[in-house]
């Protein structure tokens, strides 16, 4: 019974220039989204090593979302293109390992899109909640 009520754990990686600012804007406009989303700031979405995502799942995250500048708008010119390709490969591998597609996502959120950030998070949390807890990659040795 209690498992069903457990709130999902979501890690969001946001690039400093667009998506983190977009998340700030969502805050400025008081647009609510679930508290399950915890944001980690990275300079660029391309800084996110696939290792970080695997680590999150290993440690019991139920979903990981990666937000960056829109294609063509990267502060570092081309970083988000690398992200797009890397994550396409990683997510398809994770899918193969049994981490459902809805648990991973790459989304482009600009600094002006506070509403999009909140909407994306609401939608993502809803999808992950529907899937329930993620046990597939969780390493029980990590739990105390």
């Amino acid at each position: 019974m209690q498992i069903e009520n457990k709130k999902p754990l979501i890690v969001a990686f946001c690039c400093n220039w667009c998506s983190y600012a977009g998340a700030d804007l969502a805050g400025n406009n008081r647009l609510n989204y679930p508290a399950e989303v915890k944001i980690i700031r990275v300079p660029c979405s391309c800084r996110v090593n696939p290792m970080f995502i695997l680590r999150a799942f290993q440690r019991g995250a139920d979903g990981v979302i990666l937000c960056g500048c829109h294609p063509g708008d990267c502060h570092y010119t081309s970083g988000n293109y690398y992200t797009r390709r890397r994550m396409a490969l990683l997510f398809s591998m994770l899918d193969y390992l049994g981490i459902e597609r809805d648990r991973t996502r790459v989304e482009w959120v600009s600094a002006a899109e506070g509403a999009k950030f909140a909407a994306t998070m609401n939608d993502f949390v809803e999808k992950v909640t529907a899937l329930g807890e993620n046990k597939r990659l969780e390493d029980l040795r990590c739990k105390k």
């Binding site: 890690v11 980690i40 990275v42 300079p43 660029c44 391309c46 800084r47 996110v48 090593n49 696939p50 290792m51 970080f52 680590r55 999150a56 440690r59 995250a61 502060h75 570092y76 081309s78 970083g79 690398y82 890397r86």
Partner: peptide, 28 residues
């Protein structure tokens, strides 16, 4: 930007201020 840190096959490249172990510890 840190793009190089991700492609490095030997893990030699790291970004000061946003190092691999720092982000990893945040995840943890």
């Amino acid at each position: 930007c840190g793009c190089c840190t991700v492609v490095c096959p030997s893990g030699a490249m790291d970004l000061k201020g946003f190092a691999n172990n720092q982000i990893m510890s945040e995840v943890d």
